[in-house]
Design a protein around this nucleic acid. Structure first.
Lengths: 167, 167
DNA sequence: GAGTGTCGTCAAGTATCTTGACTATATGGA
DNA sequence: TCCATATAGTCAAGATACTTGACGACACTC
């Protein structure tokens, strides 16, 4: 076989960013595949990202925009899609005529439940692969990193870049 | 402030997938910001992902498609963009009339060098935040996870799902 | 040299996300 | 009360990333 260009011996990157990215992608690919296999064909990465910010009890659309790190239009379009799929519903906020409340439908709650189960399964797989101890240190390090990030910027729990800078 | 809906006490998810996703996004946001600040305005996440698969010495376009986990059309469009930006160039493969070689231009190599520097800076920041030991265990766990993944499927180093299944 | 498969391209469509402009409601004060 | 300003959500248009399908050019085998 041709081997004059060193295609064979070339290595992929090996730094934190790359590893985190690969791990994240792999996790999500596994999760999404399992979700779709469980009958939730509407499940996509972008939607999953948004759902992560919607607690079981529902939330104000504006609160959602603040928490997730994207524009309100992006959030809106994702919500439009999820609403059309029957996963969520939007109700007028009784306490603010401008606002809307976002909450899960039966279908959405069922999906959340399946999601929880699948997460556990994946986690078990990970533990089986690298051992409980290493898995725990992984989680510990990731949490510490997140805490560090929160402290570095303002104090909100996320990668939101100082929600009160230009406001 | 209104507080009847438990907005305040609600917590974000805390499982591996979420943590990996957040960490990955945060890393990339930091990296991309630094790259753009360093004058590489063409830098985006998708392009970065692809560049990760292109070794310094260049590669065949087809090899690239195989390594990255996307369709060849997606790769092609990304390459089109990078070529238009003057980061890469495509040459005919002297050993295969059908093929093309992708390699970095001077501009591309300069960007890679800045990228390496920035990666180190970010890494130092991480170590400062969570300590050298914890950082090392993090990397160790991520590598172990990747190894586990490789062994689970075929043997290729990545999340590519068995490149020779339907082929 | 004919058949088959690989490499890259063209074209069109979908999903995600962005900026800009706009409507309706809320809030705080003259 | 009325007005100014800010906030919540929407509408519209466009950019980017990615997909499927179809195709032309070359390579490889027989």
């Amino acid at each position: 076989m041709v081997k004059e260009l060193d295609e064979k011996s070339e290595t992929l990157p090996d730094h934190v960013g790359w590893r985190l990215w690969q791990a994240s992608r792999a996790w999500h690919a596994e999760f999404a595949a399992a979700m779709r296999a469980a009958g939730h064909a509407w499940f996509t990465e972008a939607r999953a990202g948004l759902l992560g910010y919607i607690p079981r009890g529902g939330t104000r659309q504006s609160a959602l925009i603040e928490r997730s790190a994207t524009s309100k239009q992006a959030v809106q379009q994702l919500l439009d899609g999820l609403e059309a799929e029957g996963v969520l519903e939007r109700l007028p906020d009784p306490r603010d005529g401008r606002g809307k409340l976002v909450r899960y439908t039966r279908k959405g709650l069922d999906a959340l439940q399946d999601g929880d189960r699948i997460k556990l399964e994946i986690e078990h797989g990970y533990v089986a692969r690298i051992g409980r101890e290493r898995f725990d240190t992984l989680m510990d390090a990731l949490r510490a990193l997140d805490r560090g990030r929160s402290e570095a910027s303002g104090e909100a729990g996320n990668l939101r870049d100082r929600p009160s800078e230009a406001k």
